[in-house]
Design a protein around this nucleic acid. Structure first.
Lengths: 158, 158
DNA sequence: TATTGACCTCAACTATAGTTGAGGTTCTAT
DNA sequence: ATAGAACCTCAACTATAGTTGAGGTCAATA
C-alpha cells in the first residue's frame, strides 16, 4: 500500500489510483478505454493520467451495469456528452431516468414470469398450447442472463 | 416443410422434429447434449433419436433459462433425476419451486436497486461514502446481465 | 544512479451460450 | 437405385465482459 502523496490536491490520477479508488481492476480500466467508455491523457512516458472526473464517470458506469445495461449501451449513452468535464447532476438525471425505466421493464417482465411460474408449479402441464409459461407473447422479453437476445422465431412451432 | 408422417404415434423423434416442435435450433440441441442437459438414442446410422419426453425436458430447460438460471445449474438440477422417463409433475414441482425462489431473489435485488436509483436520480452525488447506490452491502448481489459474478472486493476502496 | 514497483502494449485465455461451416454420411421418397 | 434433404462430427467463430501473461518501459525513492 502506497502512502498518500498529498502533492497537489488536483493532480491527475494514475491508473492504479483510479483502480484503487473505484474498486475496478487496472485491466478493466484499460478495457473500458478500448471500448470508449473512459478516456485518458498520457504522461510524457505514455502512461495514463486521469482527471478526477473519471471517478464519477466510472461510478455511473458501475451503477448502469448493476441495472443490467450492456457496456455498449452505456458507452452510447455517455458518448453524447463531453468526456473532459465532470458529469453534471443533470447529465446523471437524464441517464439514470432512462436506465431506471429499463430496470422497471426488466422487473415487470421478471415479475410476470414469476407469477406464471407460481401458477404453473402445481400444474406442470407445460403444454405448448395451454401453459402461460410456454406462450411467450405475454412475457415479451424476459431477457435473462445470457448474452444474446431472445430468438424472434421462438414459439412459432407446433 | 415436411408433411407429417403419421407412422407410429409413439415413434421416436429426429433432432429436426424436436427442433421444430421445441423452437430450438438443431445446433442448440446438439449443444445441450454436449452439456449433459438432454440425451439421445442413436439409430443404426448414428443419428439422434429422442423419446417424446425430451420435449418436456426441453420445455423445462427453456423456462429455467427465462428465469435466469445458467445452463450449468439447470444441468445439475436435472441430473439428479432419471433422463429416460418423462419428468413427472412432482419433479417439475421441486425444480420450479426452487427456481421461483431464485427468481424472487433476483426480483427483490433489482427492486431494491431500482428504489435506490429512484432516490438518487435527483441527487447525483454518487458519493462512495454517502450514496446508497455506491454501498453494495445493502444490495448484496444484484447479479445483472453479465456472465461473471460480482467482484467480491467491490466497494473496498476509499 | 540504481532499483523496484507501477506502468505500457498486445495476444491469448476464461466463461456463458450458442452459431456457422467444412467435409462426409444416412434416410427416405421416387 | 439414386437424388436430395436431413443428419453426423469437429473446429472455429460470434458476442459480452473481462483477466492473464510476456516482454519491455517509466518514475520515484533510497
Amino acid at each position: 500500500m502506497k502512502k498518500d502523496k498529498p502533492n497537489d490536491i488536483k493532480r491527475e490520477l494514475t491508473v492504479g489510483e483510479v483502480a484503487e479508488r473505484s474498486g475496478l481492476a487496472v485491466s478493466t480500466l484499460h478495457f473500458y478505454e478500448t471500448k470508449g467508455l473512459i478516456r485518458s491523457n498520457r504522461s510524457r512516458g505514455n502512461q495514463r493520467r486521469y482527471p478526477r472526473s473519471v471517478l464519477r464517470r466510472v461510478a455511473v458506469i458501475k451503477v448502469a451495469q448493476r441495472t443490467g445495461i450492456p457496456l455498449a449501451e452505456i458507452q452510447a449513452a455517455l458518448s453524447v456528452l463531453p468526456d473532459d468535464r465532470p458529469l453534471t447532476v443533470e447529465d446523471w438525471g437524464r441517464l439514470s431516468k432512462n436506465w431506471r425505466q429499463q430496470l422497471d421493464e426488466r422487473i415487470a417482465n421478471l415479475t410476470a414470469l414469476r407469477d406464471q411460474l407460481t401458477g404453473c408449479i402445481g400444474c406442470g402441464c407445460l403444454s405448448m398450447r395451454d401453459c402461460p409459461l410456454r406462450n411467450p407473447w405475454d412475457v415479451l422479453a424476459s431477457e435473462g442472463t445470457g448474452p444474446r437476445l431472445i430468438d424472434p422465431a421462438d414459439g412459432a412451432g407446433a
